[in-house]
Amino acid sequence: MTLQAKETLVGVFILAGLAALVWLTLFVGNWAAITGGAGYRVTAKFENIGGLTVKSPVTLAGVTIGRVSSIASDREDYSAIVTLSIDQDYNNLPVDSTAAILTAGLLGAQYIGVVPGAEIDYLKEGDSIDITQSALVLEQLIGELLFSRAGAQ
């Protein structure tokens, strides 16, 4: 094989490899981790987030509209501050929407379900969702149930 033919093949090989890398980064993967997605962030305070983790889905009527991008603890009232990163396509959520931490199935992964409110103003970058419902923690539920039955007897 002549040197020139080799050089051509090497060129084709490198271009194909780079094309594969570009395709993987642009079309297979998403940049959500860096850009936080093309969307806006709102915060929500919960008394207890249960097993919610970063990257848990945020849903509206069962449709995934975003992800949890960070979780922090409030230094003053010891509640949890969850930042939701919501896709730009869903920028029509009323400001009085509520957020609840739900569980997929009885013991499944936890996610945030958003229920839209009725105001005309929409949530935008940096807003907070004020009405929230904490995670149902199974142990607490069972504890309360036993306690109330004991009280009734």
């Binding site: 980064t25 993967g29 981790a33």
Partner: peptide, 10 residues
């Protein structure tokens, strides 16, 4: 595309 992350996976 939804689940594969460019930084953490690719």
């Amino acid at each position: 595309h939804e689940g594969v992350d460019v930084v953490h996976d690719v």
